[in-house]
C-alpha cells in the first residue's frame, strides 16, 4: 500500500528540502546543458548519409540460383517454412554443370521462392547451404505495397541480375 508521509516540517527541514530540490534539479540540468557543446551528435542524416553495415549483418536474402544444387537443406532448416523449392531430374545426356566451388549440379531447379514476409531473418538457411549460394545481402530498404509482392522468385531474370551487385567473384 502506498504510505504518504505527512508531517509538519521545521523551518530547517523546510528550507533544507527546498535547497535539496533546487540543487539536485540544477545538477541534472547542468548535465543536460553540457550536451549543447561538449558531446558530439550521434545522429546521422539518413537518407543522405547511410550507415555502412557490418559484414555479418543479416538483411534481405539472396539466392544465386545458377549455383544452387537443389539440396533443399535451407527449406528444411527454415523454422517458419518460407522457402519453397521444386526441382526435377535433368533430361538424359545433358551436360552436368559445376557450381563455383566445384560441386556438380545434378537437378534442374524449377522453383525457388522465398516469402520474405514470413522470413524471420534468423540465418539458419544460410548456415546449412553447402554451396553458399544462399546469403544475406545488406539490403534493408525493400518495403512493398502488397503482401504478394513480398514473395521473391529467385529464378526471375530481374532478381538474377542482382548477382553482379551482391555476389563477390
Amino acid at each position: 500500500m502506498n504510505t504518504q508521509v505527512h508531517h509538519t516540517s521545521s523551518v530547517k527541514e523546510y528550507f533544507g528540502g527546498l535547497w535539496d530540490g533546487i540543487y539536485s534539479s540544477l545538477k541534472g540540468m547542468w548535465i543536460t546543458f553540457r550536451y549543447v557543446w561538449a558531446v558530439a551528435p550521434v545522429s546521422i542524416e539518413y537518407p543522405e548519409v547511410r550507415e555502412v553495415l557490418p559484414e555479418r549483418a543479416r538483411m534481405r536474402l539472396f539466392n544465386d540460383a545458377l549455383n544452387c544444387i537443389s539440396c533443399t537443406q535451407c527449406a528444411m532448416a527454415c523454422p517458419v517454412d518460407c522457402i519453397y523449392i521444386a526441382s526435377e531430374k535433368l533430361p538424359e545426356g545433358s551436360e552436368i554443370k559445376k557450381t563455383s566451388n566445384g560441386q556438380a549440379i545434378r537437378l534442374h531447379l524449377t522453383q525457388f521462392t522465398i516469402d520474405t514476409a514470413l522470413c524471420c531473418y534468423c540465418g539458419l538457411c544460410t548456415t546449412v547451404c553447402p554451396t553458399e549460394c544462399l546469403t544475406h545481402s545488406h539490403d534493408y530498404e525493400f518495403s512493398a505495397y502488397t503482401i504478394d509482392s513480398m514473395k521473391y522468385d529467385y529464378l526471375a531474370p530481374d532478381i538474377v541480375a542482382w548477382r553482379d551487385r551482391i555476389v563477390k567473384a
Partner: peptide, 12 residues
C-alpha cells in the same frame, strides 16, 4: 552485437 552476430535485437 550486430558486428558479432548479424542482428541488433533478435540474434540467433
Amino acid at each position: 552485437f550486430e558486428e558479432v552476430s548479424g542482428a541488433r535485437l533478435l540474434y540467433n
